[in-house]
Design a protein around this nucleic acid. Structure first.
Lengths: 281, 281
DNA sequence: TCTATATTGGAATTTTTATTCCATTTTTGT
DNA sequence: ACAAAAATGGAATAAAAATTCCAATATAGA
């Protein structure tokens, strides 16, 4: 016994932890392993994407040495170590379920509750960050212009995104912009939308799994030449075909639930932007 | 010859090109391939990291269909296609900087629209960060325990926070927890809440300026010994006096509008925590 | 310098993963 | 409604990758 393998007690499951570990062990490492440690911190992307053979060649070591490196840190093998680098690129929590399970066993209930909260908070933060990169300013401007020209704005959204559209109703009301929430009570959606004309506009939101009502009502409106502004999560959304302008928002999830933070931020920007544009002209 | 394979003349080598290609072919694609195309654009990260088997399962298709998909676009095989997704993740950071620079250079309206969006995004991020510090894990646990013990959960929230409570109705439903949304249609709030007993619970949310309905209905429920869990923004809130447990959330604002992000994250943590606790015992 | 111990290189092996093939189902055109 | 073509599912196969093992080399302590 007493081999080189670590006692596998504190294996870092995220990149920061790994970096700290590597730095602290740096001095005590044999030549090739130190070489790999340096390479890993310098080229985390290669570590995330490469194969053992490829990375080994780049780093100037043997494939087996890479596996040894991973094991000496306490990981099962190279694949396990690589997961850390992949998670980092994904900006996701490392194996969150595992972590939650561990917390539940070791400490009290409130720790678990806190980490649930942390999970949803994190998902929200990621969504916001991603949206900053994905929404194109020109499209946003076009959407605002379309809504600003409208006489009345009809708000369309069901199920998961209903809260967003409900908030739009609140915000437009506060801003003095005439907007009508199509809540589809008593299945009266079509009737609620029937009076929309080409001088109005529809703001429709829908994410997977796309609620059929939303797409149907938006299509019906588009048919009658009512301008449609859509917020959705993919170019394949049924809303896209009928939309004059569409904005893409990909929300991050935690467990089975997706965030709505980015959608809210976007909806608010649309609402305020519309109100300001109207005030101008 | 003349098989289904594409003529391999214009294989996009970057993500944007691929996206454009997929969009242009969207209509002509058979069902499963379209399904994959949608999945690929929605979950580019999974495409980058996953294995054929894993991605196929997530997307709900057979592994062979994934390979066919890649080939139908002109790629050698799945691995070749996957490379596009990996390259995209590698270049994500420079891409983002480009975008910001472009933003600065472009014309006035777009900049303004973009900065509105940034403002709301920022407010949301700040709110999330603050909440992490202000919510005490023990209180959160107590709130979850209270809700978990309840037979039926009555959801109370009006005006600005109505979206949060509406989302709770959605989440609890998904999680199989009996919950009733007091939407106060036709001013029937008191009647909707009348059947709540001490074996149930009320989850009430209210922020300044506190909507009187919410406080009144919560007080009426508390009067009849229905446990009340409250989410509010200060110790001076009218909800506090009637609540058995209360959680404080201070949302940041941008312009006249406050974020709701932190409230959403908290509400989701409550919902999932409650469902888990019920599953345990 | 010599020996015990740790480290390294590289081929052999096992495991995982991508791809192909064919029978079955679905769609399309007449 | 029918035949032909296209699309699909799933098992079989091929390819690629990770891991292991052992001999060779280097290192440290006496």
């Amino acid at each position: 016994m007493g081999s080189a393998e670590a006692v596998a007690t504190d294996i870092p499951e995220d990149f920061d932890g790994l970096r700290t570990l590597l730095l602290s062990r740096r001095e005590a490492m044999p030549k090739r392993l130190k070489q790999i440690a340096a390479f890993a911190l310098e080229h985390p992307e290669d570590m995330a994407f490469g194969t053992v053979a490829g990375i080994a060649e780049h780093a100037g070591v043997q494939p087996s040495t890479l596996v040894r490196f991973a094991k000496s840190l306490g990981y099962d093998g190279f694949s396990h170590l690589q997961q850390i680098f992949r998670d980092r690129l994904r900006e996701r929590f490392p194996d969150y379920r595992e972590r939650l399970r561990g917390l539940r066993d070791s400490e009290g209930h409130h720790v678990h509750a806190a980490s649930l909260l942390e999970g949803f908070t994190h998902a929200a933060a990621i969504s916001l960050e991603r949206m900053q990169a994905s929404v194109r300013p020109e499209e946003l401007s076009r959407a605002i212009e379309t809504l600003a020209k409208a006489d009345t704005i009809y708000l369309l959204g069901a199920r998961r995104v209903f809260p967003v559209i409900a908030y739009c109703a609140y915000a437009f009301g506060k801003l003095g912009v005439r907007a009508i929430l199509i809540d589809h009570v008593g299945q009266l959606g079509p009737e609620q939308l029937a009076i929309a004309s080409k001088r109005d506009a529809v703001l429709a939101i829908s994410f997977t799994p796309y609620a059929p009502v939303t797409a149907d009502l938006a299509a019906a409106a588009a048919q009658r030449d009512v301008p449609v502004v859509a917020i959705t999560d993919s170019a394949f959304s049924p809303l896209v075909t009928n939309a004059d302008v569409w904005l893409e928002v990909a929300e991050a999830d935690f467990g089975a639930f997706r965030s709505l933070s980015a959608s809210f931020a976007l909806a608010m920007a649309l609402a305020v932007g519309t109100a300001e544009k109207r005030a101008e002209g």
